[in-house]
Simulated scan of single mutants.
Amino acid sequence: MREIVNTNAAPAAIGAYSQGTTNGELVFTAGQGPLDPDGEVLEDASIAEQTERVLDNVAAILEEAGASMDDVMKTTVFLDDIEDFEEMNETYATYFETEPPARSAVEVGALPLGIGVEIEAIALVE
Rank of each mutant, 00 (worst) to 15 (best):
E97Q: 11
L35T: 06
G20I: 09
A48C: 03
R2M: 13
A45K: 09
D80P: 00
E3Y: 08
E86V: 11
E120H: 00
T75L: 08
E87P: 03
L79P: 05
A16H: 12
I4H: 03
E25T: 15
D56E: 15
R53T: 14
A110E: 13
E43I: 11
V108N: 07
M69R: 11
L124N: 14
A60Y: 01
L124C: 10
T29H: 02
R53N: 00
V5N: 00
E40T: 14
G15P: 04
G15V: 08
G66T: 06
D56R: 11
M1K: 12
G33C: 01
A30E: 01
L26V: 12
G39H: 08
G15H: 05
A59I: 02
E3M: 09
G20A: 07
D44N: 15
L124E: 14
P112R: 02
I14V: 04
M88T: 04
E3N: 08
I82C: 07
F96I: 09
L42Q: 10
A9C: 07
E25M: 11
E120W: 00
G20L: 08
T29L: 02
N6S: 10
E87M: 06
G66N: 08
L55R: 05
T76I: 12
A102I: 13
L35M: 12
A67E: 07
I61V: 15
L26H: 09
V117S: 01
I122F: 12
V5Y: 01
S68A: 08
L124I: 14
Q32R: 13
R53P: 00
D36E: 11
A67Y: 04
A102P: 08
A9M: 11
G24K: 06
G39T: 10
P101Q: 08
A48K: 11
F85D: 09
Q32P: 00
A67D: 05
Y92L: 10
V125R: 05
E126N: 14
N23T: 10
A45M: 07
D70N: 15
G66S: 09
G109K: 10
Y92M: 04
K74C: 10
V117T: 07
V27N: 06
A93P: 03
A10F: 01
L62A: 05
A105Y: 10
N8D: 13
A105V: 15
F85I: 06
T91I: 01
L55C: 06
R2H: 10
G15D: 14
I119H: 03
A45F: 07
A67T: 06
D81K: 13
T21Y: 03
L62Y: 03
F96M: 08
D81V: 12
M69H: 11
G114Y: 07
I14R: 08
D38C: 02
L26K: 13
